[in-house]
Structure formats: C-alpha cells, structure tokens
Design a binder for these strands. Sequence first.
RNA 1: GCCGGCGUGGCGAAAUGGCAGACGCAACGGACUUAAAAUCCGUUGGGAGGAAACUCCCGUGCGGGUUCAAGUCCCGCCGCCGGCACCA
Length: 850
Amino acid sequence: MASQRKQYPFSDFEPKWQQRWAESGAYRTPNPGDEGFDPGKPKYYVLDMFPYPSGAGLHVGHPEGYTATDILARHHRMRGFNVLHPMGWDAFGLPAEQYAVKTGQHPAVTTAHNVGQFKTQLQRIGFSYDWSREVNTTSPDYVRWTQWIFLQIYNSWFNPATNRAEPISTYTGSDPDSVRLAYVAEMPVNWCPELGTVLANEEVVDGKSEVGGFPVERRPMRQWMLRITAFAERLLSGLDGLDWPESIKLLQRNWIGRSNGAFVDFTPEGGDKITVYTTRPDTLFGATYMVLAPEHPLVARITSADQRTAVEEYVKSVASKSERDRQDASKEKTGVFTGAFAINPVNGERIPVWIADYVLTGYGTGAIMAVPAHDDRDHAFALKFGLPIIQVVQPPSPVEGCFTGDGIAVNSGILDGLSTAEAKDKITAWLEERGVGRGAVQFKLRDWLFSRQRYWGEPFPIVWENGSHRAIPEGELPVRLPDLDDFKPTGTAEPPLSKAEDWVRYSDTARRELNTMPQWAGSCWYYLRFCDPNNAERFIGRDAAAYWLGDGSQKSGGVDLYVGGTEHAVLHLLYSRFWHMVLHDLGHLPTPEPFQRLVNQGIILGTDGQKMSKSRGNVVNPDEVIDDYGADAFRLYEMFMGPLEQMKPWSMKGVEGVYRFLARVWRLAMHEDQEGRWQLSDAVADIPPTPTQLRVLHATIKKVTDDLSTLSFNTAISQMMICVNELTAAERRPVAGLRTLLILLSPFAPHIAEELWEHLGRKFPGFEKGAHAQPWPVHDDSLLMDNEVEIVLQINGKVREKLTVPKDASCEQLEAAARAHDKFSAHLAGKETIKVVAVPGKLVNFVVKG
RNA sequence: GCCGGCGUGGCGAAAUGGCAGACGCAACGGACUUAAAAUCCGUUGGGAGGAAACUCCCGUGCGGGUUCAAGUCCCGCCGCCGGCACCA
C-alpha cells in the first residue's frame, strides 16, 4: 500500500490544515473575561482521560476515545457552544522512574521526550484541542497547586455534625492531628528487602516480588493517609445523580461496600467486652463460637496459658503472609483456639473464642460472632474444627448445607416466627435497650494510603520537627524535587529523597517529609486546571470555575462528558470525586461532583482478536496507518468499527473501506486530469437536488444529528456512506447537496471537508469561512418521506406480499387494499380470518385458521 | 464463589415489539483496460424445488413462555469477557 498511488492527496492537505488551525488559533477557547469570550453561548466541557506518556508512544487504543470527543467538540462548536476541549500529561509515575533507573537518564528528561512524541502524534490526527491549555502534572506550576490542594486537605477535618469537610480551625477537640483529612499512621506494607523498596499489592505474587522473585514481608511503616472513608456515605449517594454507566456506578458502590448491621458486645470470662460487627443480628442465637483477627488487641490478654504457644505461633505465621496470600478465599481455613470463652448476650451461652485469619483486622471491629448454620465461611470453619452448628433461620424451601438467605427465625427465643427483616429490627432494639449493642453501618472502603517511597512524584509540603509534622507556608510552594543524580532505592526503608541531604534539611531543627505522592494525585484535579491553566493566584479562578463547571444551580455540573477506559472505574474516578468534594465543602468549587456524564470506550484488540501487546507483536501504530491512509481515514475508521463502548478488533481492510469512502467523497467534487492533477469536477453544478437526493440528504442530516447525541458514530458514518452512494450515482452533482454533506462530515473528517470546501468556494457562492465554521444544518421532516410507503402483507406473522400505499392510509384502507391484492387474497382463499392487525406505514397481518 | 456485560452471515456490525442482516470488509460476476491495479455497475444468510420469472422451508448461543407479531419482553440453561474476591 505504501508504494501505491494515493486515491486522494491527503498527505498534501492534511498537514496544511493542521498548520493553519494551529497558526490561526482556530480552537483556542477564551475564558470569561478574555477577549472574544461570548457569555451568551452555553458551555460544553468535553474531556479525555489524559494519557501517561510512556516511551512506547501512542497506540490505536488511545485515539478511540479522543476521536469521539473531538467529533463532539467540533459538533458542539458548530451548534453554538463554547467548547472546552483540552489535553495534557499525567507524567509522574513508576515506569518513568524505573526506566530512568535502568538507563541512568533523569526521569524529567525521558518524560519531556515522551511528551513531545505524544503531542506530535496527537496533532497528526487533527484533534481540535486548545493546546494553550496544555498541562503537565510534573511542571512546577502544576505541582504547586497539587501541593496546595494537599494542604487544603491537611488543614481540614470532617465534621460529623455538618457532614462536611471544614477548616481544622473549627475543630474544638484537643488533638487536631487525630482528625485531619490527611494524617500519619503506622500501616503494614509489602516490603521487599532485596529490592529495597515497598511494593504495591499487585506487584507481589505468592509472597514474592513480581520482579526478581525476592521474598516480600509485611512490615508496619509510617504512612500518610487520606480520610476518604469519612466521605463514604456521600461518595455513595452522589452516584445517584450522575449520568454514568450503571455498571461503573455498581463497581464504585461495591468498592465503597456499605452494609447495615449491628455492633454486639460479648463478654469474655473475666475480661473486657469484645465487640463484634454483624449484618445478621437476627442470627445471634445461632452463634456457637467467636473469632478474633490474629492482630486483634485483646488476643494476648484473653489467651489461656496452655494455648499461648499455639496462639503465638499462629499469629507469627500469619504476620509473614502477604495480604494477597492471606485473602485467598479458596484456601482451607486455618485458626487456633485461644482457650477463652465469652458469653453471648442474648442467651447467656458460653462459647469458645478462636483466632483465625479469615477475620480481617481492618473491617468492622476485627472480631466476629460465628454462625456456622447461616454463613458459608463460619460453616467451613466449624466443619473443619468440629464446632457446633445450630440452625436459627428456617429457609422458605428446604436447602442443602448452609443457608445464608432470608427466612423465618427459629430456636431464637423472642425472635421465633419473625421474618429476617423483622428479627433484625427487634433484636437490634433489644440490644440497644440493654446497652449491649446498637445498629451500625460499615463500609468496605479504606482510607487512602497516600505516600510512596519513590523519587518521581510530588514532594509533600510538610516538614517534621520534634516528632510532629506541620505544613510549610503556602508562599513556599511549590516544593520542588531535588535534582538528584542518584534516585535509585536506598536499600533501606528510607525513600530516595533522603539522599538529598541539603534539601532534606529545612532548618536547623526541621526536616522535610521524604515520601512522595502517588501518581493519582496529579490526575485527581487536572480537569480543574484545564479551566484556568495559567492562573497564578488560584488553582482555578472563581469566574472560570463558575462558567466551566456551572454555578451549582443546574444538574449538569462539572465536566459535561468524560470519556476514558474502564480501568479507572474505581480508583481515579473515586479519588477525583473525593478531592472535588473536599474542595467544594471548603468553598473553593461551585459544584459537588466533577464529572456529570461518563462514557467508557471499549478496548481495541489486535487484528488477531487478542489484546494488543508488545509481546504478541500485534500492536497497531497510528503513525503507520496515517502514513498510508491519512488522518481522516484513521479517525473515521476508529469510529466506524463499531459502538464506542464495545470491545472490537482492528482491521486494516476496514481502514481501506473508509479510505475508499473518503476517496468517493473527494471524487464527488474533484476530477483528475490527464497530467494527474486534481481539478474541480465539471459534474458539480448549481442545480437543485432531485427529490430523492433531497430526501436522502435530509435523512442524513437527521440520522447524523440523532446519532451524535447518542454517540452512535458508526451508524452516523453508515448514513453518510448511503448519502455519498446516492450522490455518486448522479451524473451532475447539486452543489447545495455537497455543501450540506461536507458540513455533516467535517467533525468526523475535518481535513477533507475543509479542503473540498475551499475548492468549491473558488467557483460557487456560499462557501465563506470554512466547513467547521458553519452552523449545524437542520432537517425538514416534510422532506423525509415519500408520499407512498411500502408495507408488508402478512398471514399469521409471515410476509407473503408487499404493497405500496399512500403514506397516510388508514387501518381500514390498508386492510381493504390487502384484500384487493390478487396474489395475497389468493393466500386467504378457503381460510377463516380470525383477526386483522393493521399498522399504518408498516404492515397488515391476517390471522387465519384452516 | 458473587456481581456486571456480551453471544446475529465468511468477518466488523445494523435493526422505537412490526420485512433480520442497513453500512462496510471479503468473495463472485460484469464494464473500462493490450493487461493488471484503481474505478464504476451488479450478486452475495442457509437449504429445497424450478428451464425461468419465481415458489417454499429454515435461521439472531440452547430450551421453554408471553404476543396477531420476539434478535428485542419473561423464565431456565450454556459459553466468552470484565470486575470483586473470606468485608462477617
């Protein structure tokens, strides 16, 4: 293909238009207060998930969503919106740092190089980004505000009375550090001594490091945490108002994991109370033993002398397991009896207390009552260790084994005969009356471990003095990374920043925080900076925020459309919502939610139907596609493949298909002379379209417009193909029809639309400005339908004949026409007609017998 | 295990409960050409019958159901993909 002659000169005019757009600032979007800003226009903020600029460059998966948003951005401009359509770089992160360690190049150098490469590639596709708003999470100007936002979080607390984040100054307790939204805690992490670094859970396989296979141990380390759990309820309820795919909302709901239940106090013999959390207080009478997490603080105190050795050994063996190992539910349960007994508050029963690692220390109270008859895990544990099983819920219909559903309480004293829901209410009230329990809500969501022992990330704007931390003054932001030559892991638990001794020394008595922020930090708020990227006074100006995010009075707040992959369904999208909520509470943002509408694009597979990967060798490079077929064909194919949200394989033949389509568009207007030069075709004439052409044109206006509103790009393109096929068949082409077609095509294939517009404008009037600057056309309903429509005549739902009738024929007229149809009425002969169903404009169905 | 999503020609896919397969790819036939490529025109779900115009039957993962009418709605399975995975 590469050596083959091009079907239309895309390689000449595509770069030309890209250059013109860049030079004229065609897609610069003014802000409120800027010259050229029109406050009368509605706003449309359409955003892509900005990429991590890896060394591998762009692959065809990136531009899928980017093309969709670009088409919508262009379409909205033509419909009179002020469109915010920006792009930037999520440039901190592990791969850059690891590559830097390997090659000895500073990550700032490799990152800058990769950003350049990505930007060149994106610009070749003809995206209408406002590049004057480009942001880079690693630039000092950006880091400054990331750190500033961290300080907002650090300097606030969650007031349960108002259910909001408030400045820490409104906290009246004695220890503000204990309630800050950013706090320090000892947390167990995966520490790999051999690699000298902490690893994420995903980087640990079977208790060994994924890289190198070295042993990994869990060790408590001092970590920065963000108190996202305080917002669990609001993060959950806020989902209801968002136009997101239900599947994504469900993922977040499951991640937040709200459950309704009760705390219940059990009393060990001669000890403090042990509080458990349960979602099934109605099964309290079936509790036959208790289990504490091995790390539970009471374990040591209640363990009997003769069980002490066994318990200590068990606790030790559990401690050496990785989180992942420990949470492997498929494994057989393990545990040890503590030798202690506790009293069940509802019936005074004396039940044994065990420890087992199937009880997690971080959820609920780290202790449970075990009801083996009605909980799968307790059931398995009881069977293994021979503990008693008492049924207290009668299933609606008999079931084998363990029954975990709702039923009728039995063997449960005061609860007998009640439904599960009634029993829960009654026993919870009973517990509360006696002061031995209370209703409670729990969440699976954990606080966000926010620090990393890495070099390539935002430094914390925090210093330590005399064992306590404090914020550095805002005026000192940004805290820049020290320019280390050696940013390798230290080999100890010290982060690499510890090597920058001068930097670490903040004053004679104070030293800087050595951890850096995780990669999520920068991406938590980039959509805000895009609104006002050069503001030196604030992270986002108030006017810019009010305009681009909305003033909070309308439902659609924040980003109007956010397109990206499902892989960010939970973490990025939850973290962003959390930060946004805090900033909103503190009065910095007008809206409570960042992304009103979210759409996930599907993954593009290789031509072999497999996930694209370097190792499979099936990665498609956009540059090569554009070399051979041009940017317009590339864009069009990305959208023509199938529904945006669907997973679909790449096909070079498919690219050729849309390429041929664009060549047909080209030849509608252009003709190649003897010397191989393209001239405006003589077939284009200032004549009125035929009625058929007019009908197809208006059907195309309607279909493309409707399909853009539902993001059905593939069917919009199909309709334009139908339109082009219709116009190609005509010997003389009405210029008005071409004009409309080019306007409709211009968001999809902007270069060719603009080029043809220019050519036509040299001969015909009505081609001023450019295709992209035209108002979006409106279809005329009266032109859509012929006066006659073809309907089908059915017998018992099967099509027998077809018939052309006036489009507004009534049911009675349809039935009469059907009966008058010779061949069709022959089918009816000798049969009894039971019923006739007539649908105007569609069909007549005779239900017959015999 | 639990929770989602998806199963339609040789392939990518269309189809407010109303003619299944629009549009594109591939394939085949024709026109143009010395020839090929490109282009243009046409055929193309499967099967049976007919010389032919044409006629009939089957068909949206499988099995049931609702309906005059089901790819679409309901019930029960199977397969693939994704997420969560001892959260009491």
